Computed example of a mutant assay.
Amino acid sequence: MRETAYAKINLALHVRGNRADGYHELETLFAFVDAGDELTARRSDRDELTVVGEFASQLTDPFGNLVAKALTSLPHTGGLAVVLEKNLPVAAGLGGGSADAGAVFRIVREEFGLPDDWRARAAKLGADVPACVESVACLGRGTGTDLEPIENDWVGTQVLLVNPRAPLATSAVFAGWNREDRGPLPEGTVSQIATAGRNDLETAAISLCPPIADVLAALRQTDADLVRMSGSGATCFALYRSHEVIQNAAEKLASEHPGWWQMQGKLR
Rank of each mutant, 00 (worst) to 15 (best):
Y6R: 15
A7N: 13
K8D: 03
I9T: 01
N10F: 03
N10D: 09
L11I: 00
L13K: 06
H14S: 02
H14F: 04
N18Q: 15
N18D: 15
N18E: 15
G22F: 09
G22M: 13
G22C: 11
H24A: 13
T28M: 14
T28D: 06
A31W: 07
A31K: 07
F32K: 02
G36S: 08
D37G: 12
L39E: 11
L39D: 13
L39A: 10
T40E: 14
A41Y: 12
S44Y: 03
D45R: 13
L49Q: 00
T50D: 11
G53F: 12
E54V: 05
S57F: 02
Q58V: 02
T60M: 06
A68V: 12
K69F: 02
A70T: 02
A70V: 09
A70D: 06
K86T: 05
L88M: 00
P89D: 02
A91M: 10
L94Q: 10
L94C: 05
G96V: 10
S98E: 12
S98R: 02
A99G: 11
A99S: 15
D100V: 07
A101M: 07
R106N: 03
I107N: 04
R109V: 01
W118A: 10
W118K: 05
A120Q: 15
L125I: 01
L125M: 02
L125N: 00
E134Y: 00
R141Q: 11
R141P: 02
T143S: 12
T145L: 04
E148V: 03
E151Q: 10
D153V: 00
W154A: 06
V155L: 13
G156Y: 06
Q158N: 11
Q158T: 00
V162Y: 00
N163G: 07
A166P: 00
A166W: 05
L168T: 10
T170D: 00
S171Q: 14
A172Q: 13
A172D: 12
A172I: 04
V173Y: 08
F174H: 10
A175Q: 14
A175C: 08
R179Y: 05
E180C: 03
D181C: 11
R182C: 07
G183S: 09
P184C: 05
P186T: 09
G188V: 08
G188E: 07
A194R: 09
D200K: 06
E202A: 11
T203H: 14
A204G: 09
S207G: 06
C209K: 06
P210Y: 11
V215Q: 01
L219E: 12
L219C: 08
R220P: 02
Q221K: 05
D225K: 05
L226A: 07
V227M: 09
M229F: 06
S230R: 14
G231E: 00
S232A: 15
T235L: 10
C236W: 01
F237E: 04
R241G: 12
R241C: 06
V245E: 12
V245K: 15
Q247N: 15
Q247K: 03
N248L: 12
S255H: 09
G259I: 02
W261Y: 07
Q262D: 14
G265P: 09
R268T: 14
